[in-house]
Design a protein around this nucleic acid. Structure first.
Lengths: 154, 154
DNA sequence: TCGATATTTCAGAAAATTTTGAAAGTTATC
DNA sequence: GATAACTTTCAAAATTTTCTGAAATATCGA
Protein backbone atom coordinates (compact mmCIF):
# COMPACT_ATOMS: atom_id res chain seq x y z
CA UNK A 1 0.00 0.00 0.00
CA UNK A 2 1.63 3.22 -1.11
CA UNK A 3 1.26 6.70 0.31
CA UNK A 4 -1.59 7.56 -1.98
CA UNK A 5 -3.60 4.55 -1.00
CA UNK A 6 -2.88 5.29 2.61
CA UNK A 7 -4.15 8.84 2.19
CA UNK A 8 -7.27 7.61 0.40
CA UNK A 9 -8.10 5.07 3.08
CA UNK A 10 -7.53 7.60 5.83
CA UNK A 11 -10.03 9.98 4.27
CA UNK A 12 -12.47 7.24 3.35
CA UNK A 13 -12.49 6.05 6.93
CA UNK A 14 -13.61 9.44 8.18
CA UNK A 15 -16.31 9.69 5.55
CA UNK A 16 -17.57 6.20 6.34
CA UNK A 17 -17.63 7.10 10.00
CA UNK A 18 -19.85 10.05 9.10
CA UNK A 19 -22.34 7.73 7.45
CA UNK A 20 -21.23 7.27 3.85
CA UNK A 21 -21.22 3.65 2.69
CA UNK A 22 -17.74 2.18 2.57
CA UNK A 23 -17.11 1.69 -1.12
CA UNK A 24 -18.57 5.05 -2.20
CA UNK A 25 -16.42 6.66 0.48
CA UNK A 26 -13.32 4.86 -0.75
CA UNK A 27 -14.04 5.70 -4.36
CA UNK A 28 -14.61 9.37 -3.61
CA UNK A 29 -11.42 9.48 -1.54
CA UNK A 30 -9.49 7.78 -4.31
CA UNK A 31 -10.54 10.50 -6.73
CA UNK A 32 -9.71 13.20 -4.19
CA UNK A 33 -6.09 12.07 -3.94
CA UNK A 34 -5.68 11.34 -7.62
CA UNK A 35 -3.43 13.74 -9.51
CA UNK A 36 -6.05 15.01 -11.88
CA UNK A 37 -9.12 13.66 -10.08
CA UNK A 38 -10.08 11.51 -13.04
CA UNK A 39 -10.16 7.72 -13.02
CA UNK A 40 -11.72 4.97 -15.06
CA UNK A 41 -13.55 2.04 -13.59
CA UNK A 42 -10.55 -0.19 -14.32
CA UNK A 43 -8.20 2.16 -12.49
CA UNK A 44 -10.49 2.35 -9.51
CA UNK A 45 -10.93 -1.40 -9.50
CA UNK A 46 -7.18 -1.84 -9.28
CA UNK A 47 -6.50 0.99 -6.86
CA UNK A 48 -9.23 -0.06 -4.43
CA UNK A 49 -9.03 -3.80 -4.91
CA UNK A 50 -12.77 -3.89 -5.49
CA UNK A 51 -14.91 -5.45 -8.18
CA UNK A 52 -16.30 -3.68 -11.21
CA UNK A 53 -19.77 -4.35 -9.84
CA UNK A 54 -18.86 -2.59 -6.64
CA UNK A 55 -17.65 0.47 -8.54
CA UNK A 56 -20.87 0.50 -10.48
CA UNK A 57 -22.83 0.48 -7.23
CA UNK A 58 -20.72 3.22 -5.71
CA UNK A 59 -21.23 5.37 -8.79
CA UNK A 60 -24.97 4.97 -8.42
CA UNK A 61 -24.65 6.60 -5.01
CA UNK A 62 -22.09 9.28 -5.83
CA UNK A 63 -23.62 10.63 -9.05
CA UNK A 64 -27.00 11.79 -7.70
CA UNK A 65 -25.49 13.48 -4.66
CA UNK A 66 -23.16 15.38 -6.95
CA UNK A 67 -19.87 14.25 -5.48
CA UNK A 68 -18.69 12.69 -8.71
CA UNK A 69 -19.37 13.34 -12.39
CA UNK A 70 -19.32 10.86 -15.23
CA UNK A 71 -17.70 11.60 -18.55
CA UNK A 72 -16.85 9.65 -21.61
CA UNK A 73 -14.25 10.46 -24.23
CA UNK A 74 -15.90 10.44 -27.64
CA UNK A 75 -15.14 7.20 -29.41
CA UNK A 76 -14.42 5.25 -26.28
CA UNK A 77 -16.61 2.94 -24.33
CA UNK A 78 -15.00 3.41 -21.00
CA UNK A 79 -16.42 5.91 -18.53
CA UNK A 80 -14.24 8.36 -16.67
CA UNK A 81 -15.28 9.39 -13.19
CA UNK A 82 -14.37 12.92 -12.20
CA UNK A 83 -14.30 14.79 -8.93
CA UNK A 84 -14.46 18.56 -9.14
CA UNK A 85 -12.44 20.81 -6.89
CA UNK A 86 -15.76 22.05 -5.54
CA UNK A 87 -17.34 18.66 -5.11
CA UNK A 88 -18.39 19.50 -1.56
CA UNK A 89 -19.90 22.74 -2.65
CA UNK A 90 -21.84 21.02 -5.40
CA UNK A 91 -23.02 18.30 -3.08
CA UNK A 92 -24.32 20.84 -0.65
CA UNK A 93 -26.56 22.25 -3.33
CA UNK A 94 -28.60 19.08 -2.95
CA UNK A 95 -29.45 19.82 0.66
CA UNK A 96 -33.16 19.52 -0.03
CA UNK A 97 -32.56 15.85 -0.77
CA UNK A 98 -31.32 15.45 2.79
CA UNK A 99 -33.74 17.59 4.75
CA UNK A 100 -36.76 17.30 2.49
CA UNK A 101 -37.73 13.75 3.46
CA UNK A 102 -37.30 14.52 7.15
CA UNK A 103 -39.44 17.62 6.85
CA UNK A 104 -42.08 15.61 5.01
CA UNK A 105 -42.07 12.96 7.72
CA UNK A 106 -42.48 15.57 10.44
CA UNK A 107 -45.39 17.09 8.56
CA UNK A 108 -46.96 13.67 8.11
CA UNK A 109 -46.55 13.08 11.81
CA UNK A 110 -48.36 16.32 12.58
CA UNK A 111 -51.24 15.23 10.39
CA UNK A 112 -51.48 11.91 12.19
CA UNK A 113 -51.55 13.52 15.62
CA UNK A 114 -53.78 16.47 14.86
CA UNK A 115 -53.27 20.12 15.72
CA UNK A 116 -54.68 19.84 19.18
CA UNK A 117 -51.93 17.43 20.23
CA UNK A 118 -49.45 18.95 22.68
CA UNK A 119 -46.63 17.56 20.55
CA UNK A 120 -47.80 19.64 17.60
CA UNK A 121 -45.91 22.76 18.63
CA UNK A 122 -42.70 20.77 18.94
CA UNK A 123 -43.13 19.20 15.53
CA UNK A 124 -44.02 22.52 14.01
CA UNK A 125 -40.94 24.14 15.40
CA UNK A 126 -38.83 21.35 13.96
CA UNK A 127 -40.36 21.91 10.53
CA UNK A 128 -39.82 25.65 10.77
CA UNK A 129 -36.21 25.18 11.76
CA UNK A 130 -35.48 22.90 8.84
CA UNK A 131 -37.13 25.31 6.43
CA UNK A 132 -35.06 28.12 7.84
CA UNK A 133 -31.90 26.06 7.62
CA UNK A 134 -32.43 25.15 4.01
CA UNK A 135 -32.84 28.78 3.13
CA UNK A 136 -29.69 29.74 4.96
CA UNK A 137 -27.61 27.13 3.20
CA UNK A 138 -28.14 28.88 -0.09
CA UNK A 139 -26.77 32.06 1.41
CA UNK A 140 -23.76 30.21 2.70
CA UNK A 141 -22.92 28.87 -0.71
CA UNK A 142 -23.05 32.34 -2.17
CA UNK A 143 -20.73 33.66 0.51
CA UNK A 144 -18.31 30.80 -0.11
CA UNK A 145 -17.89 31.98 -3.69
CA UNK A 146 -16.73 35.30 -2.35
CA UNK A 147 -14.52 33.72 0.26
CA UNK A 148 -12.95 31.38 -2.22
CA UNK A 149 -11.75 34.28 -4.28
CA UNK A 150 -10.34 36.02 -1.21
CA UNK A 151 -8.33 32.89 -0.53
CA UNK A 152 -7.13 32.83 -4.10
CA UNK A 153 -8.46 29.33 -4.55
CA UNK A 154 -9.58 29.63 -8.14
CA UNK B 1 -50.42 0.41 16.62
CA UNK B 2 -52.11 3.69 17.46
CA UNK B 3 -51.79 7.04 15.75
CA UNK B 4 -48.96 8.14 17.95
CA UNK B 5 -46.89 5.08 17.21
CA UNK B 6 -47.65 5.49 13.56
CA UNK B 7 -46.41 9.08 13.67
CA UNK B 8 -43.27 8.06 15.55
CA UNK B 9 -42.43 5.30 13.09
CA UNK B 10 -43.04 7.58 10.13
CA UNK B 11 -40.57 10.12 11.47
CA UNK B 12 -38.08 7.49 12.62
CA UNK B 13 -38.08 6.02 9.14
CA UNK B 14 -37.00 9.28 7.60
CA UNK B 15 -34.28 9.78 10.18
CA UNK B 16 -32.99 6.26 9.70
CA UNK B 17 -32.95 6.85 5.98
CA UNK B 18 -30.75 9.88 6.60
CA UNK B 19 -28.23 7.74 8.42
CA UNK B 20 -29.32 7.58 12.04
CA UNK B 21 -29.31 4.08 13.52
CA UNK B 22 -32.76 2.59 13.78
CA UNK B 23 -33.36 2.41 17.51
CA UNK B 24 -31.94 5.85 18.30
CA UNK B 25 -34.12 7.22 15.50
CA UNK B 26 -37.19 5.49 16.91
CA UNK B 27 -36.47 6.65 20.43
CA UNK B 28 -35.95 10.25 19.36
CA UNK B 29 -39.14 10.15 17.30
CA UNK B 30 -41.06 8.66 20.23
CA UNK B 31 -40.03 11.59 22.38
CA UNK B 32 -40.88 14.05 19.62
CA UNK B 33 -44.49 12.86 19.47
CA UNK B 34 -44.89 12.45 23.21
CA UNK B 35 -47.16 14.99 24.89
CA UNK B 36 -44.53 16.50 27.11
CA UNK B 37 -41.45 15.04 25.44
CA UNK B 38 -40.47 13.15 28.54
CA UNK B 39 -40.34 9.36 28.88
CA UNK B 40 -38.73 6.84 31.15
CA UNK B 41 -36.85 3.82 29.93
CA UNK B 42 -39.80 1.62 30.86
CA UNK B 43 -42.22 3.77 28.87
CA UNK B 44 -39.93 3.73 25.87
CA UNK B 45 -39.45 -0.01 26.17
CA UNK B 46 -43.18 -0.53 26.02
CA UNK B 47 -43.92 2.08 23.36
CA UNK B 48 -41.18 0.86 21.02
CA UNK B 49 -41.34 -2.82 21.80
CA UNK B 50 -37.58 -2.81 22.37
CA UNK B 51 -35.41 -4.13 25.17
CA UNK B 52 -34.03 -2.06 28.04
CA UNK B 53 -30.56 -2.82 26.74
CA UNK B 54 -31.52 -1.37 23.40
CA UNK B 55 -32.74 1.83 25.01
CA UNK B 56 -29.51 2.08 26.93
CA UNK B 57 -27.57 1.79 23.69
CA UNK B 58 -29.73 4.38 21.94
CA UNK B 59 -29.24 6.79 24.81
CA UNK B 60 -25.50 6.41 24.46
CA UNK B 61 -25.84 7.73 20.94
CA UNK B 62 -28.43 10.44 21.53
CA UNK B 63 -26.92 12.11 24.60
CA UNK B 64 -23.55 13.18 23.16
CA UNK B 65 -25.11 14.55 19.98
CA UNK B 66 -27.44 16.63 22.12
CA UNK B 67 -30.72 15.33 20.75
CA UNK B 68 -31.88 14.06 24.12
CA UNK B 69 -31.19 15.03 27.70
CA UNK B 70 -31.19 12.81 30.76
CA UNK B 71 -32.83 13.84 34.00
CA UNK B 72 -33.67 12.14 37.24
CA UNK B 73 -36.35 13.11 39.72
CA UNK B 74 -34.72 13.50 43.13
CA UNK B 75 -35.43 10.46 45.22
CA UNK B 76 -36.07 8.17 42.30
CA UNK B 77 -33.78 5.81 40.58
CA UNK B 78 -35.41 5.91 37.21
CA UNK B 79 -34.04 8.18 34.52
CA UNK B 80 -36.27 10.39 32.45
CA UNK B 81 -35.24 11.12 28.88
CA UNK B 82 -36.20 14.51 27.59
CA UNK B 83 -36.32 16.11 24.16
CA UNK B 84 -36.19 19.88 24.05
CA UNK B 85 -38.24 21.91 21.64
CA UNK B 86 -34.92 23.07 20.19
CA UNK B 87 -33.32 19.67 20.03
CA UNK B 88 -32.31 20.25 16.41
CA UNK B 89 -30.84 23.57 17.21
CA UNK B 90 -28.88 22.13 20.11
CA UNK B 91 -27.67 19.22 18.05
CA UNK B 92 -26.38 21.57 15.41
CA UNK B 93 -24.17 23.24 17.94
CA UNK B 94 -22.10 20.07 17.86
CA UNK B 95 -21.27 20.49 14.19
CA UNK B 96 -17.55 20.28 14.88
CA UNK B 97 -18.14 16.69 15.95
CA UNK B 98 -19.37 15.96 12.44
CA UNK B 99 -16.96 17.94 10.31
CA UNK B 100 -13.95 17.88 12.59
CA UNK B 101 -12.94 14.28 11.92
CA UNK B 102 -13.36 14.73 8.19
CA UNK B 103 -11.26 17.85 8.24
CA UNK B 104 -8.61 16.03 10.25
CA UNK B 105 -8.58 13.16 7.77
CA UNK B 106 -8.17 15.53 4.83
CA UNK B 107 -5.30 17.25 6.59
CA UNK B 108 -3.67 13.89 7.34
CA UNK B 109 -4.08 12.99 3.69
CA UNK B 110 -2.30 16.16 2.64
CA UNK B 111 0.59 15.30 4.93
CA UNK B 112 0.89 11.85 3.43
CA UNK B 113 0.94 13.15 -0.11
CA UNK B 114 3.14 16.19 0.38
CA UNK B 115 2.58 19.73 -0.80
CA UNK B 116 4.01 19.16 -4.22
CA UNK B 117 1.31 16.64 -5.06
CA UNK B 118 -1.18 17.91 -7.65
CA UNK B 119 -3.98 16.68 -5.40
CA UNK B 120 -2.86 19.01 -2.64
CA UNK B 121 -4.77 22.01 -3.93
CA UNK B 122 -7.96 19.96 -4.07
CA UNK B 123 -7.55 18.69 -0.55
CA UNK B 124 -6.69 22.15 0.69
CA UNK B 125 -9.78 23.60 -0.86
CA UNK B 126 -11.87 20.93 0.81
CA UNK B 127 -10.37 21.80 4.19
CA UNK B 128 -10.94 25.50 3.62
CA UNK B 129 -14.54 24.90 2.66
CA UNK B 130 -15.26 22.88 5.77
CA UNK B 131 -13.65 25.52 7.97
CA UNK B 132 -15.74 28.17 6.29
CA UNK B 133 -18.88 26.10 6.68
CA UNK B 134 -18.37 25.50 10.37
CA UNK B 135 -17.98 29.21 10.93
CA UNK B 136 -21.14 29.96 9.00
CA UNK B 137 -23.20 27.49 11.00
CA UNK B 138 -22.67 29.54 14.13
CA UNK B 139 -24.06 32.55 12.33
CA UNK B 140 -27.07 30.55 11.22
CA UNK B 141 -27.87 29.51 14.74
CA UNK B 142 -27.78 33.11 15.89
CA UNK B 143 -30.13 34.15 13.10
CA UNK B 144 -32.51 31.35 13.98
CA UNK B 145 -32.93 32.83 17.43
CA UNK B 146 -34.14 35.99 15.79
CA UNK B 147 -36.33 34.17 13.33
CA UNK B 148 -37.87 32.06 16.04
CA UNK B 149 -39.09 35.13 17.83
CA UNK B 150 -40.50 36.54 14.60
CA UNK B 151 -42.49 33.36 14.22
CA UNK B 152 -43.70 33.63 17.78
CA UNK B 153 -42.31 30.19 18.55
CA UNK B 154 -41.19 30.80 22.08
C1' DT C 1 -25.32 -2.59 55.04
C1' DC C 2 -29.10 -4.77 52.93
C1' DG C 3 -32.82 -5.25 49.75
C1' DA C 4 -35.23 -3.56 45.90
C1' DT C 5 -35.35 -1.21 41.59
C1' DA C 6 -32.92 0.56 37.42
C1' DT C 7 -29.37 0.80 34.22
C1' DT C 8 -25.30 -0.87 31.76
C1' DT C 9 -22.18 -4.26 29.81
C1' DC C 10 -21.19 -7.96 26.91
C1' DA C 11 -21.30 -12.12 24.19
C1' DG C 12 -24.00 -14.02 20.93
C1' DA C 13 -28.31 -13.99 17.84
C1' DA C 14 -30.71 -11.62 14.43
C1' DA C 15 -31.06 -8.44 10.86
C1' DA C 16 -29.55 -5.35 7.51
C1' DT C 17 -26.07 -3.81 4.42
C1' DT C 18 -22.33 -4.34 1.37
C1' DT C 19 -19.71 -6.76 -2.00
C1' DT C 20 -19.04 -10.12 -5.34
C1' DG C 21 -19.24 -13.41 -9.47
C1' DA C 22 -21.75 -14.43 -13.31
C1' DA C 23 -24.97 -13.30 -16.71
C1' DA C 24 -27.27 -9.84 -19.32
C1' DG C 25 -27.22 -5.46 -21.35
C1' DT C 26 -24.75 -1.42 -23.89
C1' DT C 27 -21.91 0.85 -26.98
C1' DA C 28 -18.43 1.44 -30.45
C1' DT C 29 -15.63 -0.41 -34.21
C1' DC C 30 -15.13 -3.31 -38.07
C1' DG D 1 -24.91 -7.16 -38.19
C1' DA D 2 -21.15 -9.32 -35.72
C1' DT D 3 -17.64 -8.84 -32.42
C1' DA D 4 -15.14 -6.96 -28.75
C1' DA D 5 -14.86 -3.84 -24.71
C1' DC D 6 -17.02 -2.16 -21.00
C1' DT D 7 -20.93 -1.44 -17.61
C1' DT D 8 -24.97 -2.82 -15.07
C1' DT D 9 -28.10 -6.03 -12.85
C1' DC D 10 -29.12 -9.60 -9.67
C1' DA D 11 -29.01 -13.41 -6.50
C1' DA D 12 -26.13 -15.13 -3.15
C1' DA D 13 -22.03 -14.77 0.12
C1' DA D 14 -19.61 -12.19 3.35
C1' DT D 15 -19.27 -8.67 6.42
C1' DT D 16 -20.90 -5.37 9.51
C1' DT D 17 -24.13 -3.44 12.41
C1' DT D 18 -27.86 -3.68 15.53
C1' DC D 19 -30.45 -5.74 19.09
C1' DT D 20 -31.37 -8.90 22.80
C1' DG D 21 -31.10 -11.78 27.16
C1' DA D 22 -28.57 -12.58 31.06
C1' DA D 23 -25.36 -11.19 34.32
C1' DA D 24 -23.06 -7.46 36.51
C1' DT D 25 -23.10 -2.94 38.32
C1' DA D 26 -25.08 1.15 40.33
C1' DT D 27 -28.43 3.82 43.15
C1' DC D 28 -31.77 4.81 46.60
C1' DG D 29 -34.48 4.04 50.86
C1' DA D 30 -34.79 1.55 55.07
Amino acid sequence: MDQRQRAAERIAGALAQAGMARLPARMFAALLVDDDGRMTSAELTKFLGASAAGISGAVKYLLPVGLVRREREPGSRRDVYVVDDDAWHTAMTRHDQLYGPIRAALAAGRDLLGEESPADVRLDRAVQFLLFLEGELDGILARWEVRRKELGLD
